[in-house]
């Protein structure tokens, strides 16, 4: 950035090109680095309704019986997914701190064997960090034979620290047909156990 000097211009041009190319490569890599950064950021802050993975209860806390939170259960299907997929109950009133089990029902109405995978999301997203799943069918894929019908449990605990102004949480699952997913990712999925989707 100093005065142009009488140094070999080719040399100084090469230096500028080198720095610029380093910048270009760095920013290209940064574009891709945004993917895990975003994933982590959403996981930590719970924004975007991304619920975290399996919750390990370290110590059992007592339920806060003074408070009732309504939890609403929603199920929907991804593009071209023919299964019948619904929660067993639509809403439940729970005490924060109390482990609750509910079931979702999936029915493969087609005449072929299929693999489904449910992706969860929670609203309002501010409540995501206070919603813990100790067990969930969304931690695994669901292989269903033709005509098979299963009941799939979710065990969850609404945290006692849930902000007082949140009275209602909506847990929604979208069931995706894994065969529609390209081959590469479903192979990977079997080995990584989809920890990020949990």
């Amino acid at each position: 950035m100093t005065q142009p000097t009488s140094n070999d211009p080719r040399q100084s041009n090469l230096r500028v090109v080198g720095w610029c190319l380093a910048g270009v490569v760095g920013m290209f890599a940064f574009g891709f680095a945004m993917v895990p950064l975003y994933e982590k950021f959403c996981e930590i802050t719970g924004i975007n309704g991304k619920t975290s993975g399996r919750y390990e209860m370290t110590q059992a806390k007592e339920a806060d019986v003074s408070r009732l939170v309504e939890v609403q259960f929603v199920a929907s299907n991804g593009a071209d997914m023919p299964w019948q997929f619904r929660p067993e109950v639509e809403t439940l009133k729970v005490h924060p701190g109390q482990p609750v089990t509910i079931r979702y029902i999936a029915h493969n109405v087609t005449s072929r064997d299929m693999v489904g995978h449910a992706i969860p999301s929670l609203q309002p997203s501010r409540g995501t960090r206070f919603f813990h799943k100790t067990e969930c069918f969304c931690f695994q894929q669901q292989p269903l034979q033709a005509g098979e019908r299963v009941e799939m449990p979710v065990v969850f605990i609404v945290d006692r620290d849930l902000p007082a102004d949140i009275h209602k949480l909506t847990l929604s699952y979208t069931m995706y047909d894994q065969e529609r997913m390209p081959a590469v990712s479903s192979v990977e999925k079997k080995t990584t156990k989809t920890k990020d989707n949990g």
Partner: peptide, 24 residues
């Protein structure tokens, strides 16, 4: 073409991520 799911929720991706990168 190559079966990744950067922006596909069904494979663990996120369409909103696209908007963040695009607008960056």
């Amino acid at each position: 073409h190559f079966g990744t799911s950067f922006f596909d929720a069904a494979g663990g991706g996120d369409p909103v991520l696209f908007q963040h990168i695009f607008w960056f």
